[in-house]
Amino acid sequence: MNLFRLCGDLSHVISIVLLLLKIRATRSCVGISLKTQALYLLVFVTRYLDLFVTFISLYNSLMKVLFIATSSYVLYLMLTKYRQTYDKDHDTFRIQFLVGFAIVLALLTPHRYTMLEVLWTFSLWLESVAILPQLFMLQTTGECENLTSHYIFALGLYRALYAVNWVYRYLFEPDYWQPVTWVAGILQTALYGDFFYYYVMSKRRGKKLKLPT
């Protein structure tokens, strides 16, 4: 465990806390993509199946349980208590393409053809594109309230910190070699590029995030 990875994990946790805060504070899930949230739950469930077979550390196991639990809870809130506020008409991204993309790459790029490895690879590719429905929704509505933009920023930051962690591990851990993780992770971070730019600009002007349409 290095500092970049720890900070990456923490910003991931913070992003989920921000999302829950947003839902509570505004008592609504306006501007949140249900599709992205459902994809994240699928990502966590398929990736963390190894909870039952491998033990890495207490920290690792607890975080996995935390991610599955919180993303289930968000989805539950969106589907029950705040269902009325879900902006279905703007959440129109076709996720079949994303799932298809992840399935194809999961079948082409696993390190070994075992169930767990293929599902793990699937989860990496799916995570790399799972934010797209959310970014697309943001683009079509043009504006989002502060907590939502902080949420997306924290998510992007988590991946950017992980990328730095990979460079660090590559340099200092001679046997560490995870090409699929790296490519999928860099793709994921790159998708936030545009968003980062507008986020920083809106912070500098002290205004709400507004994207060009």
Partner: peptide
């Protein structure tokens, strides 16, 4: 085996 299969990251 190699560290390929050690998925110690989240």
């Amino acid at each position: 085996d190699t560290l390929h299969e050690v998925h110690d990251e989240l």
